[in-house]
């Protein structure tokens, strides 16, 4: 029901090309995985409704291409985003090393100073891991972001990543405003429900 939706939240997915951004989005929105995921050009976009603690929000998720050249194009879409998912590929040191650049890009172009950031290490199902979970976690802690590991292929951590991000956005004062007049969020002050996210979550 449309009137149940309290607000629309804008979320970005950024990171190097090929780390699985589009695959994560597809897994989250349609619960499927396409090994032949086509290479994103510029930006793409999907929506999904999500219920957390009895609040339903509409998510407008912007998927971006990771190529150097597109970087001049995509930051335009960073405007007014409340959340950002920074993805790297746990089997590729190079994609992890680039996170720093993506973070500074986000700082430069995001218009909300308190945008919620989440670092996601993807492809944990794949052999040949180069980045340990601890390394990822350390990075997240250093930059005060949320952290989770995931696999778009096996579903691990995907739902949880989005839920945790949204929960944090809701709990951040002044980051979003209800367009729905009188209605307000019920903000639970406890941490994200541990049961739903198993051992994957790490709230920093």
């Amino acid at each position: 029901m449309e009137e149940d939706v309290l607000t629309t939240l804008k979320i970005l997915i950024i990171g190097e090309s090929g780390v699985g951004k589009s695959s994560l989005l597809l897994r989250f929105t349609e619960d499927s995985f396409n090994p032949d995921q086509s290479l994103t050009i510029g930006v793409d976009f999907k929506t999904k409704k999500l219920s957390i603690d009895g609040n339903t929000v509409r998510l407008a998720i912007w998927d971006t291409a990771g190529q150097e050249r597109f970087r001049t194009l995509t930051p335009s879409y960073y405007r007014d985003a409340q959340g950002a998912i920074l993805v790297y590929d746990v089997t590729s040191q190079a994609t992890f090393s680039k996170l720093e650049t993506w973070l500074s890009e986000l700082d430069t172009y995001s218009t909300k100073s308190n945008i919620v950031k989440m670092v996601v290490g993807n492809k944990i199902d794949k052999a040949g891991r180069e980045i340990s979970r601890e390394e990822g976690m350390k990075f997240a802690r250093r930059h005060a972001t949320l952290f989770i590991e995931s696999s778009a292929k096996t579903k691990d951590g995907v739902q949880c990543a989005f839920e945790e991000l949204v929960q944090k956005i809701i709990q951040t004062p002044g980051l979003w405003e209800s367009t729905n007049g009188g209605k307000t969020f019920q903000v639970s002050d406890g941490p994200a429900e541990p049961s739903s996210c198993g051992g994957w979550q790490c709230t920093i």
Binding site: T29, I41, G42, V43, D44, F45, K46, F70, S76, Y77
Partner: peptide, 27 residues
Amino acid sequence: EDAQVLIQLGSDAEGSQLRAKIMSASL
């Protein structure tokens, strides 16, 4: 305005296709 144009293409596969088309001008 640009974002609205992209959003209005819808969030399905066809929309994605059209978006790619628009975006491919710079490509």
